[in-house]
Amino acid sequence: MQASAPPSPAAPRLLDNIGDWLFRNIVAVAGWFVLITLALAAFSMYWGGREAFAEFGWGFLVSTEWDPVRERYGALVAIYGTLVTTTIAMIIAVPVSFGIALFLTEVAPGWIRGPLGAAIELLAGIPSIIYGMWGLFVLAPLLGTHVYPWVDEHIGPWPILGALFRGPPLGIGMLTAGIVLAIMVIPFISSVMREVFLTVPNRLKESAYALGSTTTEVVWNIVLPYTRSAVIGGIFLGMGRALGETMAVTFVLGNAHRISVSLLEPGNSIAASIANEFAEATTPMYQSALLALGFLLFAVTFVVLSIAKLMLMQLKKREGN
């Protein structure tokens, strides 16, 4: 392009070239900045947590100790809490989100789909601290006085499963945190699934309908096989959110540094430990242990989100064909 440039005064062209060069470099620096941010974030937490990693080694991952006075730290309680609350959240949120996405794309009458979809997306933008407050002031007292006593009495005596539901009806605890987390990720997962379902070509669905399929058969045999990887990607995306969510769980988890079998007991999670304790962590080792927790959380969410992204990209590829 440069070679065949039209004859023009040399000075402006030089200016243009300098402008092009400058602009290109400015935006390139910004682009690289995004890359470097992620690497730097990971490294800064690893570096901050190096004292804890060096002191406790692999034992950090499996120790349940968390004793700021004696300076002994282990991550297992927090890891356990994070995994349990996320699991509860996903068990509730995935089927519900699937139902909502299905309703919004295949079932609901046309005029309701747009407004309802937009409403769900708006709700996905509500700050998580609101969910946390609602959980603390409304849901926890309600569960603690009306639901958990019943659960303790009726499900508690069950053979194996019962152990999960036995305990004092405090209201706050891992089950409550899981429920709040579920409510928070439902709009998120369902809006991703809705978008994914909308990518299914109409001609595929119409062909199936023309052959006499019911809506359910179209969903199971056309929509789901077409979008399978992206649906899983959406679920993983929601899981990434749930794993790292801080405010929604900190309020209702109870901040207890012990592992209890019962889901009705308070617990802790990685994000909640950091939120509750970091500003008060006075000794270098205490801070280092919390930064090490942050690094673990970052590493786990990185893996989960990478899987999500790769799964979602598969649908894009197919769309391109």
Binding site: W47, E245, I274, F302
Partner: peptide, 25 residues
């Protein structure tokens, strides 16, 4: 592609982790 991938991860990364990052830096 790489920058987009990383950016999407940053988009969903736990916000508390970004707080820790800025704290250390």
């Amino acid at each position: 592609e790489v920058i987009r991938f990383v950016n999407d991860i940053l988009l969903s990364a736990p916000s508390i982790v970004l707080g820790l990052f800025v704290y250390t830096v």
